[in-house]
Computed example of a mutant assay.
Amino acid sequence: MAAAMGQARYTVKQVADLTGVAPATLRAWERRYAVVAPQRSSSRYRLYDQADVRRLTRMAELVREGSPASLAATQVRDEESVQNATAEFRSVDGPPVADLIEAAQRYDQQLLTRVLDRALSKVSFEHALEGWLMPALTELGRAWERGEVDVGSEHFVSAAVHRRLSAAFDAAGLNEGAPVALVGLPAGALHQLGALAFAVCLRRQGIDVRFLGADVPHASWEHSVRTLNPAGVVVSVPMPRDAEAAAELIASLEESHPTLRAWVGGHGTADRALGTPLPPSAVEAARTVSRDLLRR
């Protein structure tokens, strides 16, 4: 039906020419990693659509940059999930980001309260988080980089957002009897808003989340795991400089607790393979972890 409506279809040879990947390799990627699922013609030839070509082109780029094919396939799927989630959440009718920046510049508590109330009260937490709050905080960070917002102003907003996320975490309930997951940051890592947002989403997925917060020493992670015997741990790596501490922590936890599931997420994981990677979207990451823990 799609072909009848004019959607382009490509043979494996055409896709090979477009991507620079040999037909045999394209077929292997399909079979081993399920990165695409092309349709078949009446003669049983593979027919790829434009989305398939886009995925394979991106996977080829990652492999040429040095990623193993298995990790490249995972990253392609994760990026597509984030794009789909972003498209879904863009319909959020939040206040102008300029209002948030103005509230920061003026240290205006009343305006900041109104902005956050409007952003967080009309839709689900997940929609507000992905559709307005995280993009707005990114824009606030860019305003700081441009010199439009002072460090104190940015902290003023971050503290208010932290209070809102903490309230949402408490409102999500304890989920007693559910699988336990520890969420926190490695030693030296300080930017915890992303981890806390993820923890809220994971609690709303029915998991018993214990949030450890920022700058958790290695020994404290070990103590928490020994005490709680959790079903899994999620280590947030917000900045590239936090990756080394996270790598040491995860290696140690996996060695001392071989059956423990360990995930990592955050912007600091982009250039390093640490544990089991999570999608960049906090919502999709929470869904990934909850699906795994609840079926164990």
Rank of each mutant, 00 (worst) to 15 (best):
W132D: 09
Q83G: 00
A143T: 05
Q110L: 06
S91D: 02
M59V: 03
I101P: 00
G141T: 05
R114H: 11
R90Q: 13
K122L: 07
T113I: 00
G131D: 06
S70K: 11
E126L: 05
Q109Y: 02
D99T: 09
S124H: 03
L111S: 08
R146H: 08
R106Y: 01
R146N: 10
L56H: 12
P95Y: 07
T86D: 12
P95V: 10
S67M: 15
L137M: 14
A60D: 05
R55G: 02
L71P: 03
G94T: 12
L140Y: 13
W144G: 13
F125I: 06
Q105H: 03
E88K: 12
F89S: 13
G66P: 00
D78G: 00
S124L: 00
I101E: 01
D150P: 01
H127R: 09
E139V: 06
D150S: 15
Q83R: 13
L120E: 13
H127C: 01
L129Q: 06
Y107V: 04
F125C: 06
P96N: 09
Q110I: 02
R55M: 08
A103W: 05
L133N: 11
E102R: 11
E126V: 08
G141H: 08
V76G: 04
A104C: 03
R114C: 03
E139L: 14
V115Q: 06
A104D: 01
G131F: 01
R114L: 07
N84W: 10
R118A: 06
L140K: 11
V115A: 03
F89Y: 11
A103C: 10
L112M: 04
A119N: 04
V97M: 07
R55I: 00
L120P: 00
S121W: 07
R58H: 15
L137D: 04
T113H: 13
D108H: 08
L120H: 02
R114A: 10
P95T: 07
D78Q: 15
A119D: 00
D108F: 02
R54P: 06
D150C: 03
R58F: 14
A98E: 14
D117L: 01
E148D: 15
A87K: 01
E148F: 06
S124G: 13
T74V: 12
P96M: 09
I101S: 01
W144C: 12
A104M: 02
V115N: 03
D108Q: 05
S81H: 03
S124Y: 01
T113C: 06
V63Y: 07
S91M: 08
P96D: 09
P95C: 10
F125N: 05
Q83K: 05
Q109F: 00
Q109N: 04
A104E: 02
